[in-house]
Amino acid sequence: MKSAMVLVALGSNKPHGRYGPPSRVLVATMAALDSHGIKLVARSRIRTTDPVGPSSRSYANAAVVVKTKLSLPDLLRRFKALEAQFGKRRGQRWGARTLDLDIIGAGDAVVPSRLRWRAAVHGLIVPHPRLAGRRFVLDPCVEIAPDWRHPVLNLTVRQLHARAHRPKGIADG
């Protein structure tokens, strides 16, 4: 299999006993990617963002572009193993987490398929179905992959970012 470039969002809002505060968790995660067969190609700066949902803790968020020969399902399994290695526990959907890794996009890949993309309930969904409305993901993504084009919405990260930052009530032109 040839190598693929994948856009990944990283988030943390819970300190780790070894690595410290959430921003350091993200730095340690980026350093650990290579040992999991995932080459870091580009990284955004780490930013502090307000929580979404019932959590009261601020997040550290970043995005990276990685290169890997792993299939998307295998990459997702590696990410779940890495999250567990950093102490993430399954459970509360909006709860505090030491590490969250989300595959945002992988070239023009659409998983499960264009027809079922928004309806998928479990497992791998690429591109991430809530990307267009998440400024905490778009802000770091526009820094490292502004020209990546969402294969379903047919908009670049730059365009999605601009829409997400547009004041409410202003229609698309």
Rank of each mutant, 00 (worst) to 15 (best):
H128E: 04
R118E: 07
I144C: 06
A62D: 07
V157Q: 11
N154Q: 13
Y59T: 05
V137Y: 01
M1N: 13
G11D: 02
G11K: 05
L26P: 03
I144A: 04
L99V: 06
W94A: 06
V157Y: 05
T156C: 06
G107Y: 01
G95Y: 03
K2H: 09
S35K: 13
D50Y: 13
R97E: 10
G37W: 00
V126W: 10
R43M: 04
M1F: 14
A32K: 08
A42D: 03
R166I: 10
R77P: 09
K168Q: 11
L76K: 00
L75D: 07
R78K: 11
G173Q: 01
P151R: 02
A109L: 10
L70P: 00
R158W: 13
V121W: 00
D74K: 14
P51W: 08
V8I: 09
R166D: 12
K88T: 15
N154H: 13
L138D: 03
D108T: 12
V25H: 04
Q92G: 00
R18L: 15
M1H: 14
R158E: 13
Y59R: 05
V142A: 08
A106Y: 05
R78S: 04
V121L: 10
E143C: 06
A145G: 12
P54Y: 11
G169R: 06
R43P: 02
A60M: 03
A31T: 00
R97K: 09
S44T: 03
E143K: 04
L75I: 05
V126A: 11
R149K: 13
I170L: 14
P51S: 04
A106M: 10
V137A: 07
R93L: 11
L160C: 05
R166W: 08
I144R: 01
P51R: 07
F79P: 01
D108R: 09
H16N: 11
S55P: 00
R116K: 13
V152W: 10
R130F: 02
N154G: 12
G87H: 07
D139M: 03
A162F: 06
R135T: 08
E143M: 07
R158H: 15
Q92C: 11
F86Y: 09
V157E: 00
Q92P: 00
P112N: 01
